[in-house]
């Protein structure tokens, strides 16, 4: 409790993306003074999830947060009579989402990542690539952070 001094909180950036199918575009990036909860930075992911990563100059991941509800191909339909079930309907995967990512000084790049996609169309380069059962995360797009 001695020698109190003010320390700036870790910097963070809000990112807003637009997507259509698996195509994604960074609409805006904005420094924001807020704590990024460990609920976001420590979130468990499973195959098929989408996340946003910050990376350093060497492409090393610095932080990863989930992109909840992004790229979703269905929408909920709510009944007027609340005794009736909520249902889902298929929709075009198109819209926008936002995340806040920790952005330390070494973060120079941000990537939208499809985690271990469960199904992937075979491509010609896969023939000489890793065995089909060895799946990897897929970068849908990468963008430079404005620093």
């Amino acid at each position: 409790m001695t020698n109190p001094q003010q320390t700036d909180p870790a910097p963070a950036v809000r990112l807003i993306f637009e997507y259509e199918g698996d195509s994604v575009r960074l609409v805006s990036q904005q420094p924001v003074d807020t704590a990024v909860s460990s609920f976001e930075t420590d979130a468990t992911t499973r195959p098929g999830d989408y996340v946003v990563e910050t990376r350093d100059d060497y492409g090393k991941r610095l932080a990863r947060v989930p992109a909840r509800e992004a790229f979703r191909g269905s929408a909920e339909v709510f009944p007027e009579d609340q005794k009736e079930p909520i249902t889902r309907v298929d929709v075009e995967a198109r819209g926008a989402f936002t995340v806040i990512v920790p952005a330390p000084a070494e973060a120079v790049q941000v990537a939208v990542v499809h985690v271990d996609p469960p199904e992937r169309e075979p491509r010609s380069e896969d023939i000489i690539g890793p065995p089909a059962e060895v799946r990897q995360d897929v970068d849908l797009a990468t963008f430079q952070l404005e620093r």
Binding site: R14, V27, Q30, A96, I100
Partner: peptide, 21 residues
């Protein structure tokens, strides 16, 4: 009819401009 949607990009940009956190 009861599936009510709007322009989510504009919503997010407006919210971020007004209340960044």
């Amino acid at each position: 009819r009861r599936l009510l949607v709007c322009n989510s990009t504009t919503v997010l940009q407006t919210a971020a401009a007004q209340v960044p956190e």
